[in-house]
Design a protein around this nucleic acid. Structure first.
Lengths: 236, 236
DNA sequence: ACCTGAACACCGTTCAAGT
DNA sequence: ACCTGAACACCGTTCAAGT
């Protein structure tokens, strides 16, 4: 499955000597990640990446069979360095720590979110988060099936929030929403006009993220408590 | 703000007589929506749309100043016909009805989700859903600020789910996940390997959507109950 | 006034050729 | 073996020209 990877050329100095500079697959992926973090996923093209590292466009295809394969390598480069926090405190505290770490990774690399909305991310390095989240849920008392559904809920919220409320754009999103709000007729939109400052503020921000996550954890906790009084209800 | 829209040519018969067929802005948007529903957002280009309706590419720019403007018109075309359910039952039942209606619209028109992840949707026809959701929350007892945060949570979950678990792909998503799961080492991924059939199943499906929504509504309900015993805590 | 072909600066990728 | 220029079939959009 794994294709042979081109090796970096011998020299441990950064100098390019002899004829051509050569890169490892990881170096190329890192350069692409850097580009994408700075200019957005839409700025990444095979020719642009080739230009940045100083090779011919088609040389990139020696490292990645297609742009999709490059995107998956970018995911690896972004996710590998992420560290999972330790397992201290209640299951909710552990969950907040892990989800917080994942959220920071998505905030640092918004392209991850765009990539996931194109196709599922199933790389081992990325699945470490899922492994941990399901572990916390099972430890908390959820059976396998419900732990999976709860994981899906948390995962959906994380990516949904990162996709809809990009961390860098909060101010602009609020402004645009506020402009749109002033155009609404109060007789047709009584609630949106009455609460305009509140819902436009809620277009993004860390406090919004935590508010939602806490409600989800409360809802899951309620499920555990209901199950302990009447055990059958968990499998209904 | 509104630019003058080209008018449909007089004849009420569909026949194109005289020289050229002409379309209204709405007809063009509908044609684009149809294309996008059938072949995906990536299949939509200005030249392709022009070809479908039988005009020169540049004629499309007489209706929409840019592709972005076309996308917003597509949102209108998709959302306008959506009907909001009546206000019967508890606030949770009302919420499930409205969110269900929104979810069906997003399922019918997956391009709406892709468009939203590019830029906020702030068209009045689309905001009808937000108007209703905030109305239900305020009626249930949430103050403006918390109603806005709760709306944001529900909205994030709806779009996140539609984006991560496209209704048409559930079977394929499960298969791809199952394949990835068999490649995981049980010693490094004990939870993911032990619950593989469960979490791969949870990659999509209506039951997953409702599971998550119900937990969110439970979490919000818990918040209301806590507030009624100690009112101050809502504003902490 | 309304429409549109040609052209530009891009895409991802195939192919054939360079060393 | 490794690299790459030219080319193809696309993009969104500008511009100048048709009727």
């Amino acid at each position: 499955m794994e294709k042979a990877q081109p090796r970096t050329v011998g020299s441990s100095t950064g100098r390019r000597r002899g004829r051509k500079p050569r890169f490892s697959r990881e170096q190329l992926a890192s350069a692409a990640l850097e580009l994408v973090d700075r200019d957005g996923l839409e700025a990444l093209s095979m020719q642009r990446l080739a230009e940045i590292v100083g090779m011919g466009t088609m040389t990139v295809y020696g490292y990645f069979r297609s742009k999709d394969e490059l995107l998956q390598a970018i995911v690896d480069a972004a996710v590998q360095p992420a560290e999972l926090p330790g397992a201290e405190g209640s299951w909710q505290e552990q969950m907040r720590a892990v989800v917080g770490a994942a959220h920071r990774t998505l905030t640092r690399h918004p392209a991850l979110v765009q990539i996931r909305f194109r196709e599922p991310i199933l790389r081992p390095d990325a699945l470490r988060f899922g492994e941990r989240i399901i572990g916390i849920l099972r430890e908390a008392g959820f059976e396998a099936a419900e732990a999976a559904s709860a994981f899906r809920l948390i995962f959906t919220y994380m990516f949904g929030f990162a996709g809809l409320s990009p961390a860098g754009n909060t101010a602009r999103a609020r402004n645009e929403a506020a402009t749109a709000a002033t155009a609404l007729r109060p007789d047709k939109f009584p609630n949106l006009t009455a609460t305009a400052s509140e819902w436009t503020h809620a277009m993004g921000g860390t406090d919004q993220f935590h508010y939602g996550l806490d409600r989800i954890l409360d809802g899951l906790q309620a499920r555990l408590e209901r199950a302990s009084t009447s055990p059958a209800s968990l499998n209904q």
